[in-house]
Amino acid sequence: MLNKSIIALLGLLMLNVACAEQKSEGQQNSGQAPEVIRERLLEARPDLNLGEVRPSPIEGLYQVQVVGGPILYVTPKGDMMIAGDLLAIGPGGFSRVEDPYLVEKRQEALAALDPSESIDFKPEGETKAVVYVFTDVDCGYCRRLHQQIEAYRDGGRELPGYRDLGIEIRYLAYPRAGVNSSSGEKLVTAWCADDQQGTMDRLKHMQPVPGKSCDDHPVAKHFRLGADLGVSGTPALLMPDGRLVAGYLPPADLARMLELD
């Protein structure tokens, strides 16, 4: 008959083996989670165009960008998810969480962008900051942003536009309804035009512009890039440090965010 010390030793050994097996299983499941999540999401919605599945800033959850839609935060089993922005809770209130992976990816994308592929509106004087804007010509807030590139009137006052504050706006194409939509065709027209700035200006002011196409436009490329970088709507402002600001910001607010003098 086994004495108590041997029984205790065997019990401890069995517990260690069980823990090791659970840890191994957890590691295996963790490695399989991205594949499982993609499979489950596409089973539910075969029409979804999904980006890369990877760990999220919330421990235990994974995240995946829906092209043209929100970021999904999904359980490893792919059986539950949360859609929307991730907010940090702090003493001063709530703030949008910037995913370090995406920030680094955006910085790399900024460095790799071909300046000839954007439609630029530069200040007449010194350029103090460059902001890339993913835009759609049929988006109301995109039109408002464009109308404030120059000085504009608000509440009876004349206020400085982006260019007046030293901010260069560089447009990238992001047709929310897809590249083959009416909005996509208008953006193609702007990029294929001989006068890109003038054509973009007329489109933003809802003026009729004859359609034009070409083989070397970057509209589809920009749309894919936006999806990879976390764009889910327009306008989306890609800041010099890799932050992505969703939505319109008045010129003065953008200048403050950029810490311009």
Rank of each mutant, 00 (worst) to 15 (best):
A220P: 06
D216A: 14
L2N: 01
A109L: 10
L86A: 05
G68H: 00
G242M: 13
P210W: 06
Y248I: 07
L249Y: 02
R153E: 15
D253C: 04
L113Q: 10
V209G: 10
A246C: 05
C192W: 09
S116K: 14
S95A: 15
I82P: 03
L237K: 04
V66Q: 06
L42D: 12
L48G: 07
S183N: 08
E185I: 00
L102N: 06
V130S: 09
I71G: 00
N49D: 11
E21I: 02
V67N: 09
R163K: 15
S24W: 03
A83Q: 10
A129C: 11
Y171D: 04
D99T: 02
Y73L: 13
D114E: 08
S118I: 05
Q32W: 07
E259W: 02
L159Q: 09
L249V: 04
C192Y: 09
F94M: 15
Y162I: 10
C142M: 05
K186N: 09
R153A: 15
Y171T: 05
E21A: 14
G31D: 11
L238N: 01
G233E: 00
G60H: 11
L10M: 11
K77V: 02
L42I: 13
R170V: 00
I71N: 04
Q207E: 15
A8Q: 14
E21G: 05
L249T: 04
R144V: 02
V97W: 08
K204V: 08
I37D: 07
I37A: 09
L2C: 00
L9E: 08
A151L: 08
V64P: 04
R157C: 05
P235V: 00
S182W: 00
P57C: 09
L110R: 13
E98T: 12
E150K: 15
P70V: 04
L187D: 07
E59V: 14
R143T: 08
L72E: 09
V97L: 15
L172M: 12
N29E: 10
A33W: 03
I82H: 11
E168M: 09
T75Y: 06
L13D: 01
N16P: 00
M257N: 08
M239F: 11
A220Q: 12
R202G: 00
Q207M: 14
T135K: 02
E259C: 03
Y62L: 04
G11K: 01
L249H: 05
Q197D: 05
R202E: 02
D85G: 12
P57Y: 08
I58Y: 04
R40A: 14
G11M: 04
E43V: 07
P115S: 10
R224C: 01
G125R: 00
D85H: 12
V74G: 06
P218C: 11
V179H: 01
L10A: 13
C192Q: 09
P218F: 14
L159C: 03
R224Q: 11
D85K: 13
A33E: 06
G69A: 12
D253L: 09
L187Y: 06
T234D: 10
R243H: 13
I89K: 12
V231T: 02
Y174C: 03
I6K: 12
L15E: 05
E259G: 03
G11H: 01
K122Y: 07
D138G: 01
V103Y: 03
N29A: 12
K212N: 07
R96H: 13
V245P: 00
D120R: 08
M1W: 00
D138C: 01
A83R: 06
C192G: 09
R224W: 04
K105G: 03
F121Y: 14
A177P: 00
R256W: 03
H222N: 14
G51E: 13
